[in-house]
């Protein structure tokens, strides 16, 4: 691990462990914006981890960003930090000014004679977002102030808002035609895969602790083979998902958003693990796990939501599969051994 990565991991972990308390998780769940926590996050420069020093960044690569994003998932931080890292990366790439406010990413689609950015993460709490324009395939900074925002949320009570765009908000946009809606899907999928890797590790640790603490039939439930076999499945799924996410961030450090096959594999693998892991963790925890008295639900609800955001496993599997078929049977192995295959 590089020194920078180690330092970033320690900083992030300490900050989140100290401040993402049960009260903060609960308040976040109830829709309360955590302004103080955002200030602290902003002070550390984490939203700009990928930017160079001129832009107030840490000059980090996607592996460094991956550490931050993974820790976001592990601690369940109720803030758009992953989204801000992604949006600032896109800003820097297209030469747009970087802001210290929270920001997000989204996709604009045409519906009749109107244009909407539906299910935009945290839109009500941000001033501007990096968004893919409809059918033009470019990514643009959109000012969200004054727009009609319909408050929606995912299963974990995280804001996923529907925005109605005006002609004015679209006109002010300068655009970079080299990037596309697919890039927003890719960068979003990478963020969610990293967050899922973190939440999966948290759910595993909580389940191991519970297996050792909970006594039934006169012994900790972790001593029963029936429970051990399930826990082994959980642990293996978590290991695979973490490694898939790690591989994607490494590939992105080399090839950016062109590493789309690795991003696809990571989203497919973490999404699949998310469902299995949430089911096993709840099975192991019993009734307490499905109550608000235990913290497990903060993580399983996020896992089940993130699983389908920025493309479910089927969305990405279809695209990866399309690429495999177009290469043909005799190129499959070559393409797997060649690093950083692109599927767009």
């Amino acid at each position: 691990m590089s020194d920078l990565k180690k330092m970033i991991e320690e900083t992030t972990d300490r900050l989140f462990a100290d401040h993402v308390t049960p009260d903060v998780l609960k308040a976040g769940d109830e829709g309360v914006w955590q302004e103080d926590l955002w200030k602290k996050v902003e002070d550390t420069g984490l939203p700009r981890v990928l930017l160079d020093e001129d832009n107030g960044g840490a000059n980090g690569d996607w592996q460094d960003a991956g550490v931050v994003i993974e820790r976001c998932g592990y601690h369940g931080i109720p803030l758009p930090l992953g989204e801000s890292i992604a949006a600032n990366f896109l800003r820097a790439k297209s030469g747009q000014p970087i802001e210290t406010d929270p920001t997000t990413i989204g996709i604009i689609r045409t519906d009749g004679d109107k244009q909407f950015a539906k299910r935009t993460p945290w839109a009500r709490h941000v001033k501007s977002a990096m968004m893919a324009l409809p059918s033009g395939g470019s990514i643009t900074q959109i000012n969200l102030e004054g727009l009609t925002i319909d408050h929606q949320s995912n299963m974990a009570s995280e804001p996923r808002d529907d925005i109605e765009l005006t002609t004015q908000s679209m006109e002010s946009a300068s655009s970079d035609n080299a990037m596309s809606e697919f890039n927003i899907m890719s960068i979003g999928a990478a963020v969610r895969a990293g967050q899922m890797a973190g939440a999966l590790n948290r759910v595993l640790e909580m389940s191991v602790t519970y297996c050792n603490d909970r006594v039934q039939f006169g012994r900790p439930i972790g001593r029963f083979q029936a429970v051990q076999q399930q826990m082994a499945v959980l642990a293996s799924e978590v290991a695979a998902a973490s490694h898939a996410a790690q591989t994607a961030f490494e590939a992105m450090s080399q090839s950016g958003l062109d590493a789309s096959a690795d991003i696809a594999a990571a989203k497919i693998r973490t999404s699949e693990a998310a469902g299995k892991a949430a089911d096993i963790a709840h099975a192991v925890h019993g009734a307490i796990g499905i109550t608000q008295e235990h913290q497990l639900h903060y993580f399983t609800r996020r896992l089940r939501s993130w699983r389908v955001e920025f493309g479910s496993e089927n969305y990405w599997a279809e695209r990866l599969g399309q690429k495999v078929f177009s290469l043909g049977p005799d190129e499959l192995w070559t393409s797997i051994t060649e690093n950083h295959l692109s599927i767009n």
Partner: peptide
């Protein structure tokens, strides 16, 4: 189906 299998294989 193939995309999913390949993702598993890559991992």
């Amino acid at each position: 189906a193939v995309g999913r299998l390949v993702a598993h294989m890559m991992t």
